[in-house]
Computed example of a mutant assay.
Amino acid sequence: MGDTRSSAAVITPQTAAASHDAAPRPAPPSSTERDAHRRRAARKRSAKNWSLFLLFAGPNIALILTFIYYPLIRNMEFSLLNWRLGSPRATPIGLDNYIRFFTSPSGLEVWRITGIFTAGAVVGSMILGLLIALVLNKKIPGRTFARTAVFSPYVLSGVGVALVWDFIFDPNRGALMHILAVFGIDSPAWKLDADWNLVMVIIVYVWKNLGYCAVVFLAGLQSIPRDLIEAAMIDRAGAVRRFFSITLPLLTPTVFFLFVTNIIFSMTQAFDILRIMTPTGHGTNTIIFEIYLQSFGQYQRAGYSAAIAVVLFFTLFVITAIQLRYVERRVHY
């Protein structure tokens, strides 16, 4: 019986590879398909980022919109009304409240007092705070206790501070009267004279807030590289030369920060001291105190008070924008 060969082809690795190479390959994606895929991936990343943003920042944004911007918008609406506090009726009068504030003698007096108080409070707090920080930056005994003592008035209640200082400045039985009497000096009429009234509240405000400036300045002084100071000392530069040539230029970011924050604080956060020490605003009716006097004082002109509050908001906005635009150029980072 003869040999018979199978008609089926014998599959070898070479033939398998040849058949695999001969199979049709899928076409590569076109540029349009690649662009569509990249767009889908970018949308997914964007949706994920927005979800995380809303998850973490959403509650804060909701609180800011509810308790800051919504009252601001409503206050702008009230500023266009002739409305007394508690009255069921309000008459739209347009911009009359703003015109009255910028043209009346009382409004101009508010601007004058606000400018004097802000300048005295900011300059006094920053200069005294810097001098104290320079002292506390040295290795002296008890400096930790001194730093705490300097900063502690800043965290005290403004009402409590005002009550204590109100007793100190009392011209009849105050502590300052007895101290001045030792040197044969009569106590000024702090409560009766409008100018002395303003000086009094500036002194109290500076005393309360210079600890904040001192601590911030102290942090700035400790961030200055010691190598620069030592190099200047090797070059025999005196203490005054080192301060104005090295220390002060390197402190300009700190000075700029304190300058911006102190202006805002002095115009908005001095109400407690002013209210306790000068209840009627005799010579101390800064713009923030004038808002209170016009709305809750004897006038109860809520619409006019709302207009002053709007003016205060935009004044601070413009001052801060100017500082960020022009003053920051002189800052050495």
Rank of each mutant, 00 (worst) to 15 (best):
N82E: 10
Y212L: 15
M277R: 05
Y333L: 14
L258A: 02
R241Q: 15
A41K: 11
L131T: 09
D272S: 14
F271R: 07
G58N: 06
P13M: 11
W207P: 02
D166A: 09
V260A: 15
D193I: 03
T91E: 14
R173S: 09
T278D: 15
L180T: 05
L312T: 07
E230P: 03
L54K: 09
M267F: 01
R236T: 11
G281R: 06
P225L: 04
T280G: 15
G94E: 06
S6Y: 08
R301K: 10
A57W: 15
F56T: 13
S87R: 01
L274V: 02
L81C: 02
K44Q: 14
A306W: 05
P88A: 10
H20Q: 14
R147D: 11
W111K: 13
T268A: 10
G94N: 05
V199L: 14
D21T: 12
E328P: 00
R330Y: 15
Q300S: 07
G124C: 08
A16N: 04
R5K: 13
A306T: 02
M267R: 04
R330G: 13
V255H: 05
S46N: 12
T15Y: 03
E109V: 01
V327E: 00
R43E: 09
L130S: 06
G160I: 14
M200N: 09
R45K: 15
P249E: 11
F167C: 00
A149H: 03
Y299E: 12
A36R: 11
D3G: 10
S51L: 13
C213S: 13
Q300R: 09
K138F: 00
A232I: 10
T268W: 01
P249Y: 00
F244K: 02
Y333Q: 11
P188F: 12
R100M: 02
Q294F: 08
I224P: 07
P171I: 11
F145S: 11
F243N: 01
S305R: 01
I99K: 15
G142Y: 10
E230C: 08
G297C: 10
G303C: 03
A22S: 13
I273C: 09
T15C: 01
